[in-house]
């Protein structure tokens, strides 16, 4: 990747910064006077995280080729390794590193 436009990268970084900062400061700006946020906001805030994380998993795996070599084998194997290892050890870093190495080995060695 060598045709990245610096201005655009700065713009992306700026948007991420602004939205994150806005979220973190939201309560302080909007409810500094001791008011509580509306119940519907509290509800969305509490359920959207697992929903979006699920979506991001699908998003990450969207390019998987199930109908052509290597038939999704690297993705399915590495995901399974990640799930099993994490349910067993509950060590985030271990699960991430091992499953990523498994994926890299598979994707670099299977014909595709």
């Amino acid at each position: 990747m060598n045709n990245l436009d610096t201005t655009y990268l700065l713009a992306i970084t700026g948007v991420v910064f602004a939205v994150n900062y806005g979220l973190r400061g939201f309560v302080f700006a909007a409810f500094g006077g001791g008011k509580r946020p509306p119940a519907v906001i509290l509800y969305v805030g509490s359920v959207i995280s697992p929903a979006v994380i699920s979506m991001l998993i699908v998003y990450c795996l969207r390019g998987t080729k199930f109908l052509a070599a290597p038939y999704g084998v690297p993705e399915l194997t590495a995901s399974a390794v990640c799930v099993i290892l994490h349910l067993w050890k509950r060590n985030p870093l271990l699960s991430i590193i091992v499953s990523t190495v498994v994926y890299m080995v598979l994707v670099q060695n299977l014909a595709g």
């Binding site: 799930v83 699960s95 991430i96 499953s99 890299m104 598979l106 670099q108």
Partner: peptide, 18 residues
């Protein structure tokens, strides 16, 4: 090649904990 799976793994781990 394939190191981007780290992001997928991160989300799997976060989801399992959730």
């Amino acid at each position: 090649k394939g190191i981007d799976f780290a992001m997928t793994a991160l989300f799997i781990v976060i989801l399992l904990d959730q």
